[in-house]
Amino acid sequence: MEGTRVLYFDMERCVGCHACETACKIENNISIGPKWIEVVQHDVLKDDGTWTMKFMPMNCRHCAKAPCIPACPTGAIEQGADRVVLVNSRLCIGCAECLQACPFGAPQFGPGGLMEKCTLCAHRDPEAPTACEQFCPVGAIRSGRPQELSSQKRKQCLFIAAAGVTARSTGEA
């Protein structure tokens, strides 16, 4: 998928400020509770016997072969040509089967109990950054074409969510 813009997360940069969470909530008007993107933290023992912390923002990875899609019993989750996985809330019955299938814990459940999750800011312009990228103060969330990443960075950024905007942006071209 050359040319596909991807969103990538840099664990070496994330400092756990949760700005992405709040930016996402404000951008998508999410209620208290569900977190389309969430920064998680983990204590790690270093080689010298002292402790340190690791942070990582987690959102929906928009997997190429998303396990939530076959898990959904009502066909409410769809993946478009741009690879963005979206949920149709009118078909969702809130059974949370998708959450059990998702290894990333991405599906969230709002006050009505229906599934909602990261849309990669699908309502924004295809070339515009997502809210989380825009408001990350340390550049831990960035988007770009995979070939723009150095191999070093690519190694650091295990988690790459495909924000396949190619289809959206080059569709007309």
Partner: peptide, 14 residues
């Protein structure tokens, strides 16, 4: 403290 910044340090003196 092990602050978030300390977690990014090459050497952390505590």
């Amino acid at each position: 403290y092990v602050t978030a910044v300390a977690s990014k340090a090459d050497i952390h003196l505590q």
